[in-house]
């Protein structure tokens, strides 16, 4: 019958291991203020800042930020499409190049927000099915979004083109009169 005693001892051993494990693996500061690790507050507060927001970009790239302010993307943060500031500037000095999407990356970046099947967008938000959009406007499929839409001011060229063609039409009409 010794095996029964041994079995009981094993069960007791397992229970003891669990309690020992709990003792050693529970962080020291656990429960100091509530049901969480108190050290976490300091750790979070001391994390280095990654993002600098648009005012940091303004210092060197005022022309682009100024352009952004006038367009539909005025509420966007530069770092949404480019990299976080911490990869570009440290202690006021440039440490690396900012990510600038090119080619097909541009389309991917745009469609992150404007892809038609992204659910839960506000009613008036322009949602695009790229194939449909290109077909409707008779544009070649290998073109990228930024060939018509200036990324920092999406409707700039479109509006200019529209007003240009309106002026042209008016001029032609006036000529005809």
């Amino acid at each position: 019958m010794r095996h029964i005693v041994k079995s009981l001892l094993i069960v007791l051993g397992i229970v003891a291991t669990i309690f020992l494990g709990r003792h050693f693996l529970t962080p020291d500061s656990w429960g100091k203020y509530g049901h969480y690790r108190a050290d976490y507050i300091d750790e979070e507060a001391n994390r280095s800042i990654n993002y600098g927001e648009n005012d940091s970009c303004l210092k060197c790239h005022s022309e682009v930020v100024d352009m952004l302010k006038h367009g539909e993307h005025k509420t966007l943060s530069c770092e949404v499409c480019h990299s976080p500031l911490s990869e570009h500037i440290a202690d006021g000095k440039k440490i690396g190049s900012m990510k600038v999407p090119t080619g097909n990356e541009i389309d991917k970046t745009c469609l992150n927000c404007h892809q038609k099947n992204v659910a839960g967008r506000p009613h008036k938000f322009p949602m695009i099915d790229k194939n449909e959009h290109y077909k409707m406007l008779e544009i070649r499929a290998d073109h990228n979004c930024n060939q018509c839409h200036t990324v920092h001011y999406p409707k700039e060229n479109i509006n200019k083109a529209k007003s240009l063609s309106r002026n042209l039409r008016e001029a032609v009409d006036n000529e005809a009169k």
Partner: peptide, 12 residues
């Protein structure tokens, strides 16, 4: 797995 037991008696 037998915990070192070799007891095959009817009682066990």
């Amino acid at each position: 797995l037998t915990l070192g037991s070799r007891d095959k008696s009817p009682d066990s």
